[in-house]
Simulated scan of single mutants.
Amino acid sequence: MKDSKTESITFRTTKELKESLQALAEKESRTLSNMIEMLLEQAVKSSKKKA
């Protein structure tokens, strides 16, 4: 069973990046939050493989 989500991250970004992320999310039928979380998880996994 996956850990329940209890932590929050808030950050500011450009309008262009938000719009690009929103378009990617819509293309994959995801929420913006879910898309960002998935991309962050992929980046962390990739970074761990390189280390």
Results as ranks from 00 to 15, higher is better:
2 K>E: 08
2 K>T: 10
2 K>W: 11
2 K>Q: 05
3 D>C: 14
3 D>H: 05
3 D>Y: 12
4 S>E: 10
5 K>H: 12
5 K>C: 13
6 T>A: 15
6 T>D: 02
6 T>I: 10
7 E>I: 07
7 E>V: 14
7 E>Y: 13
8 S>R: 10
9 I>N: 14
9 I>R: 04
9 I>H: 11
9 I>P: 04
11 F>S: 11
12 R>T: 06
12 R>A: 03
13 T>W: 02
13 T>R: 08
13 T>C: 08
13 T>A: 15
14 T>D: 08
14 T>C: 08
14 T>N: 09
15 K>A: 13
15 K>V: 07
16 E>H: 11
17 L>H: 13
18 K>M: 13
19 E>I: 07
19 E>Y: 08
19 E>G: 01
20 S>A: 14
21 L>C: 06
21 L>S: 11
22 Q>P: 01
22 Q>L: 07
22 Q>I: 02
22 Q>N: 12
23 A>G: 05
23 A>K: 06
23 A>I: 02
23 A>F: 10
24 L>T: 14
24 L>G: 10
24 L>C: 09
24 L>P: 02
24 L>D: 12
25 A>F: 00
25 A>D: 01
26 E>V: 07
26 E>H: 09
26 E>C: 05
26 E>S: 11
27 K>S: 06
28 E>A: 04
28 E>W: 01
28 E>G: 05
29 S>C: 06
30 R>D: 02
30 R>S: 02
30 R>T: 01
31 T>V: 05
31 T>L: 04
31 T>W: 03
31 T>C: 01
31 T>P: 01
31 T>S: 09
31 T>H: 03
32 L>V: 04
32 L>K: 02
32 L>T: 01
33 S>T: 01
33 S>E: 04
33 S>D: 00
34 N>Y: 02
34 N>K: 15
34 N>V: 14
34 N>L: 15
34 N>Q: 15
35 M>L: 11
36 I>D: 00
37 E>S: 03
38 M>C: 05
38 M>Q: 15
39 L>R: 02
39 L>H: 07
39 L>V: 06
40 L>G: 03
40 L>H: 05
41 E>V: 10
41 E>N: 06
41 E>P: 00
41 E>W: 01
41 E>L: 12
42 Q>F: 00
42 Q>N: 09
42 Q>S: 11
42 Q>W: 07
43 A>E: 03
43 A>K: 11
43 A>P: 00
44 V>L: 12
44 V>D: 03
44 V>T: 03
44 V>P: 00
44 V>H: 02
45 K>N: 06
45 K>S: 05
46 S>K: 09
46 S>F: 04
46 S>R: 10
46 S>G: 03
47 S>M: 01
47 S>G: 01
48 K>Y: 06
48 K>N: 05
48 K>P: 01
48 K>E: 13
48 K>M: 03
49 K>M: 03
49 K>S: 12
50 K>G: 10
51 A>M: 06
51 A>G: 09
51 A>V: 15
51 A>H: 11
51 A>S: 13
